[in-house]
Computed example of a mutant assay.
Amino acid sequence: MNYFPHYYSIEDIFVTQEKVECRVNTRLQRMGFLDAGDSQTDHLEPGRIVNLPLWYIKELKVNNAYFTVCIPEIYKNVHKAVCEAETTHIELGRLHPYFYEFGRYLTPYDSNHVIGRIIFETLRQRVRHLLDISKNDDQSRISKTEHRLDNIEANLHIAGMKTNAQYVKWLQMSNNNICISELVEEHQRKRLRVDHSDKQIESSPP
């Protein structure tokens, strides 16, 4: 799960490759190539909408003078469901496979703080449903949740099913082999080494 993505995270690379609509705030000379849909002008005029990759937007200051990030439609569509507390029926995987992480990156650029509230309320409303399906589903039904859950939810779903299966086995005592912790094993090895060295000293001739 990609709560704190690192440089080599594949999921993070996928997210930052996404294009985001941005409104041009000032005339940008010789920057017309950024608008792939209009090759007739060499400049970007104020008010024009261009699609920029998220990795480029991340390098801009939040209050930069060149572009204003537009809220993606997927979060506007979810906003009504959030207000009605009906987010459990939304197939987040179809809206965006990285719904939460994509929104987390865009939150600093949202002056109205809409995206942050949406992703928080969406997960808050869906977490109980996520717990329920993790208890009731098994490995054979993972494909049925493919479009219902985004990447983070899908990973939590798999982890929840594994944890629930281990808990059931523990209740049924079908897997009652108690494992020694690594700390205890290391302590035992040290004791054996000390005892072995003491025996060697005692057995050595004076």
Rank of each mutant, 00 (worst) to 15 (best):
D42Y: 11
P97F: 13
I119W: 10
F67S: 05
T68N: 10
Y109S: 09
P53D: 05
N63K: 11
H43S: 09
F99Y: 15
A81P: 04
L92G: 03
Y66A: 04
Q40H: 13
Y109L: 08
T41N: 14
V69E: 01
K58C: 07
D110H: 10
K58V: 12
G93L: 02
G47L: 10
V62P: 03
G47Y: 10
L106E: 00
D42W: 01
F67W: 00
P97C: 02
H79G: 03
I74N: 03
Q40E: 10
T107I: 05
N64R: 08
K58M: 13
E91H: 07
N51Y: 05
I57H: 01
V50W: 09
L92Y: 03
P46S: 09
L52Q: 00
R48M: 05
A85W: 09
Y75N: 07
F102R: 04
G116S: 09
I74C: 06
V114S: 07
W55H: 13
V114H: 00
A65I: 06
T107A: 13
I57D: 02
N63F: 06
Y98S: 10
E45I: 07
I119N: 01
N51V: 01
D38T: 08
V82S: 01
H89L: 13
N64L: 05
H43T: 14
L60G: 03
N77L: 15
